[in-house]
Nucleic acid binder design. Structure first.
Lengths: 220, 220
DNA sequence: GAATGAATTAATCAAATGTTTAATTATTTT
DNA sequence: AAAATAATTAAACATTTGATTAATTCATTC
């Protein structure tokens, strides 16, 4: 029944090494990524993806079989990309704890200024999908078994920072860097900020947050 | 055409003063609230609301005319409720700046432990709907013209805290209190936390966040 | 207690939406 | 160049889904 689709799948496997992003399959994925990121799975129409790609609706199922399968691919790639951008920092054995904080905040904020829809997309869809995705990308080990976390625990032991649950630390770091992007419509509304104003504030935070985090770690 | 519905609306206006939450209209709203909060507008099916209410689907339209109108009511009430819980604190002229911080954090976290779906719901739907909602509930004035903000600016002038954009302060406060709830699936997954573990961490944060915020305000 | 209006339901509609089919065009293979 | 395979499209299908209609039950009023 799906013989020709299987073949298409094979074509993809072959082509993906040689053909650039302008292949039909990549064009569909790019359009799908944009729309899924902006509207989420439930509010996205396959017809809209096809229209934005500039192809016939049937081609979407020809290449990806279903909306769900296409979504799963986009979701996985998105989470991998999100993780990739900080993976290196977390396990760099050569940099100090303080330097890692700065590097992580800088990486996150740069990424989010460029792609501000990603965090709300991930958090919304992660709630529907269970945590099998978290397992699939191995986020847990990358973060919780990282050199970064080891350094945190050592600093606690050495009495350099207050003894709090490591998760509080992770939450504070993520909160201050990521939340403003999740809440940007509200923040821009409340503060009467333009997109440019907002991005300027976020750029300021690249230097402010590390400072704040260090102050807060020593508190009390 | 909708004569009987108009009448139903009138009935509601009359009844709402005397009839308890067990009226059909309230039962529909309660079910709608639960499902909208959990799945958002796009993923919610009117049939699911009807089923959860235990009524015939047609009654939903009889009372509320459309899914959108029902949603608008829930959305407005949700935002008002969310705001209501901190409105008083913000403009209490009798309490200190530090006390307000503690009160706000406590109010927020108590509310979110009880209704953890609310922030992601609001932030997701606020992105679709423009900011006309923000205007409708007058959030801007309550927050930005508050006694709380005045106290912040005075403390900056007096040199008691570092001179940062007030929006940074608001973002930090909201981030640290609200973001963990928005990201709870990820946080619980990463930290291998049960719901109980998570709630305990959040309860700890009621005392930790005010401490952190104060430390961070003086940083550098 | 008949009459009137409100509340509720079963059934149906119409549009939206994900998916498939069958045919056509383009490309590759022999 | 013919044959075979892949890519693409127009059209249609089958469900889903929000909404409506027409009838029925329930409650209130006179």
């Amino acid at each position: 029944m799906f013989a020709y689709i299987t073949t298409a799948g094979q074509m993809k496997a072959n082509k993906s090494l040689t053909v650039p992003d302008s292949s039909t399959e990549e064009k569909i994925k790019n359009a799908a990524r944009r729309i899924f990121h902006k509207k989420g799975f439930a509010a996205t129409r396959t017809r809209d993806i096809a229209a934005e790609t500039g192809i016939n609706l049937a081609l979407l199922n020809y290449y990806f079989r279903s909306k769900q399968k296409l979504f799963d691919i986009i979701m996985l790639e998105t989470m991998q990309g999100f993780l990739q951008s900080i993976k290196g920092v977390f396990n760099d054995e050569l940099t100090s704890f303080d330097h890692k904080i700065t590097a992580i905040v800088n990486n996150y904020i740069d990424l989010l200024i460029a792609q501000p829809d990603i965090p709300l997309f991930i958090l919304s869809e992660l709630k529907t999908n269970p945590q099998d995705l978290l397992g699939k990308i191995g986020m847990k080990d990358i973060l919780m078994k990282s050199h970064f976390l080891k350094q945190f625990k050592e600093a606690v032991k050495a009495g350099k920072i207050a003894p709090i649950h490591p998760m509080h630390f992770i939450m504070n770091l993520m909160s201050m860097a990521v939340f403003p992007f999740v809440a940007s419509p509200m923040i821009m509304g409340l503060g009467e900020l333009s997109q440019k104003d907002f991005n300027e504030l976020m750029t300021q935070r690249k230097v402010l947050i590390p400072k704040w985090i260090k102050a807060l770690l020593k508190a009390k």
